[in-house]
Lab assay of single mutants.
Amino acid sequence: YKPCFVCQDKSSGYHYGVSACEGCKGFFRRSIQKNMIYTCHRDKNCVINKVTRNRCQYCRLQKCFEVGMSKESVRND
């Protein structure tokens, strides 16, 4: 598999339409299922990588959408 499109960590396969790691897969699923609203405490362009991905949930979710993750493919079960 290609590296995670969101944070470049080791991917566990294709999730919600893109190559993603377990961490970003779970983060995206929880964010969508719980209708989470995050805020960025900087200027909405935080670097998201394996080391920084937990620092800003707003920018991490934005990057999930930017790389093509589909909220329609998240099931509500």
Rank of each mutant, 00 (worst) to 15 (best):
Q33T: 07
D43H: 05
F65W: 07
S19K: 06
C59Y: 01
I32A: 07
V74Q: 10
H15L: 08
C4H: 01
K71S: 11
Q62D: 08
G17L: 04
F27R: 00
G13V: 06
F5L: 09
R75V: 12
C7P: 00
N35A: 12
K2C: 07
R75I: 10
R75F: 06
S19L: 09
F27T: 00
K10T: 13
E72Q: 07
N45F: 06
C24Q: 03
I32G: 03
I48H: 03
Q62M: 10
H15K: 05
Q33M: 14
R60A: 08
C21N: 03
C40R: 01
N45Q: 13
K10H: 12
Y1G: 08
N49T: 11
G17C: 06
V51Q: 13
R29W: 11
G23M: 06
Y16C: 07
H41Y: 07
Y1R: 06
S70P: 05
H41N: 08
G17P: 07
C40G: 01
K44L: 09
R60G: 03
H15V: 08
S11D: 11
N49Q: 05
N45Y: 04
S73Q: 10
N45S: 09
R53C: 13
Y1N: 15
K25N: 14
G26L: 05
C21M: 02
K63F: 02
K44A: 11
C64M: 04
K44T: 10
Q33L: 13
Q57V: 04
Q8Y: 14
V18E: 04
H41C: 07
K71H: 06
V47P: 12
R42A: 15
G26F: 06
E66K: 10
N54M: 15
K2N: 15
N54I: 15
F27E: 01
Q57M: 09
D77S: 08
S73V: 11
D77H: 13
K71N: 10
T39C: 09
Y16T: 09
K25G: 10
K44R: 11
N49W: 05
F65D: 04
C4E: 03
C7I: 01
V47E: 14
K63T: 08
Q57K: 06
K71C: 07
G13F: 04
H15N: 10
K25Q: 14
S12F: 06
G26W: 01
C46M: 02
F27V: 00
M69C: 05
I37A: 12
V47Q: 12
K34E: 15
S19H: 10
K71Y: 06
I37S: 08
G68D: 02
K63A: 05
V6T: 01
C59D: 00
I32R: 02
G13D: 13
C56H: 03
M69Y: 03
C56L: 00
R60L: 15
L61E: 03
F27K: 01
D43I: 10
T39Q: 13
T39M: 13
G17M: 06
Q57Y: 15
S19R: 08
F27A: 02
R42P: 00
F5R: 04
R60D: 00
E66A: 08
S70I: 15
I48D: 06
K34I: 04
M69G: 01
S11I: 05
H41R: 08
Y14L: 11
Q8P: 01
T39P: 05
Y58C: 12
C21L: 02
D77T: 05
S19M: 11
G26R: 04
R29N: 14
C7N: 03
G23N: 09
S31P: 03
E66D: 13
P3E: 14
E66G: 10
E22M: 06
C21P: 04
N35V: 07
G68V: 01
E66W: 07
V6N: 01
R60H: 15
V67G: 07
S73W: 08
S12H: 10
L61Y: 07
M36L: 12
K50T: 14
E22V: 06
N45I: 12
E66R: 11
K50L: 14
Q33W: 08
V18W: 05
K63D: 04
C64G: 02
S70G: 07
R29Q: 13
C40A: 00
R55D: 15
M36W: 07
M36Y: 04
N76G: 09
R60V: 04
Y38W: 05
K34G: 13
F5M: 07
H15M: 11
Y38P: 06
N54S: 14
G23V: 07
S11G: 07
R42G: 14
K34M: 14
F27P: 01
G13P: 07
V18F: 08
I48T: 07
R42S: 11
D77G: 11
C7S: 01
G68N: 05
K63S: 04
V67C: 07
K34T: 09
F28N: 01
T52L: 12
